[in-house]
Design a protein around this nucleic acid. Structure first.
Lengths: 234, 234
DNA sequence: CAAGAATCTGACGCAGTCTTCATGTGAAGG
DNA sequence: CCTTCACATGAAGACTGCGTCAGATTCTTG
């Protein structure tokens, strides 16, 4: 159950928010002024803080800054006026997001969910980085190609080409696109060089290079990695 | 140098943004349609994606969803109309943030900085104390390298390089990244400095420096610490 | 300040990689 | 059935990036 800390002196706002969030399954605590907010932020270590800018005493800006100096907890600021410099200021002081009043519960909730998801996604070392198709496995981190676990060394261009084709396996990649993305836009050389690299790739990963299963040529258009590719997060 | 991917068909917008961001020290790439955007998102693995909703063909919603299914990369959406349900929809589909057009460069930049900071803050909550791989042990507190318990004195740069490689053992570390992180600023001269240090490191920790087991070079890319590294927090 | 350590530089060689060229093959269309 | 076109492939040579070395330069420390 995620824990939200609301810091706002206006209980006309915090009371209904508290009930709504509790109903939505959150654990909510409220602080009615900056000092309490700051101390609760550090003591309770909530998953996300919703912080109003306009408060008597220690205002939201100062609270934001003070929290950020001491804790990495995500902060969503609430501002009354929709002023660009205000928003920038909040972000510069360490806020992660802001919302302009008035806002709906749904909207704040969406922001909070997005923030929790971001923390979740970032916290796990999950990086998007294995393309798999059958017994073929391309590791984007180490640039290693494995077939049935066996390492197949790839050269730079071969890797670049294979990566482009595998990550676009649902369509045909045009020749000029390959040149663009692998060689760079300002390529003036011989156009046969792509075929040569394709040929090498085929000898490396096709059982019968003369009858390719994966690396299909589409005459007049380009090449197509003709198998389903799954993306895995290692 | 953080890498931003702009996905937008309107080059009246992307061209000035690209220059501004490049001037601000980012590495920028642009995709003018949804398909290219999706593919670049996976291939280039940018640090943050700025994605316009309004695009012909594969629209921003679909691109957002497709990226989020495959990658945890942060996404900032650009919407034309300031409509609450639009914004909620974006967040629900996996976006992290949104910005309503028109916006200033400063504002987008503030959002991007906030997003990068968030990822940074979340990613490294605690610092490891010891990196171990086989009989090799790198102590981050004392900056000592031990192999089978025996102390191998490392010089400053050697330590920095080895640390970077060992703490990224799951991937290849690019040469320019090494220059960036070990020497500071991006390297301009064309010298063999890095190779020399790698050579020294190899003579220190490889049994057969001509056939390295740990410190693999990946031609045209960089170096890879090719062994499992365990992290210990003391 | 001097000695020694650490680091950088540039030349050179080599192995691996890429491009080019020449020629072969199969597909499409008259 | 023949021509044309696009791609395949083998071989050769050009090119490139990396490793190494020797000497220069900078940094540390007594």
């Amino acid at each position: 159950m995620p824990h939200i800390l609301l810091i706002d002196d206006d209980n006309k706002l915090t009371t209904p928010l508290r009930t709504s969030f509790e109903r939505a399954g959150y654990n909510v605590s409220v602080a009615a002024d900056g000092h309490t907010g700051l101390s609760k932020a550090l003591v309770e270590s909530p998953d996300v803080i919703v912080l109003d800018v306009m408060m008597p005493g220690l205002d939201g800006w100062k609270v934001c800054q003070a929290i950020r100096e001491r804790s990495p907890v995500p902060i969503i600021m609430l501002t009354a006026l929709d002023d660009s410099s205000d928003r920038i200021r909040g972000l510069e002081l360490g806020a992660d997001d802001y919302l302009v009043k008035p806002f709906s519960f749904q909207e704040l909730n969406a922001h909070i969910k997005a923030m929790l998801r971001r923390v979740q996604l970032t916290a796990q070392p999950s990086t998007p980085h294995l393309l798999r198709s059958g017994d073929i496995e391309l590791n984007l981190q180490t640039r290693e190609l494995r077939q049935a676990g066996k390492l197949i060394p790839l050269r730079q261009k071969e890797y670049d080409i294979l990566l482009l084709l595998m990550s676009n396996s649902e369509r045909v990649v045009r020749r000029d696109e390959l040149f663009d993305r692998v060689w760079g836009t300002d390529w003036l050389g011989d156009t046969r060089t792509l075929d040569v690299h394709m040929s090498w790739l085929r000898t490396k990963l096709e059982n019968d290079p003369t009858h390719p299963v994966y690396l299909q040529t589409v005459r007049g258009v380009g090449y197509h990695f003709a198998a389903k590719v799954e993306t895995e997060y290692v």
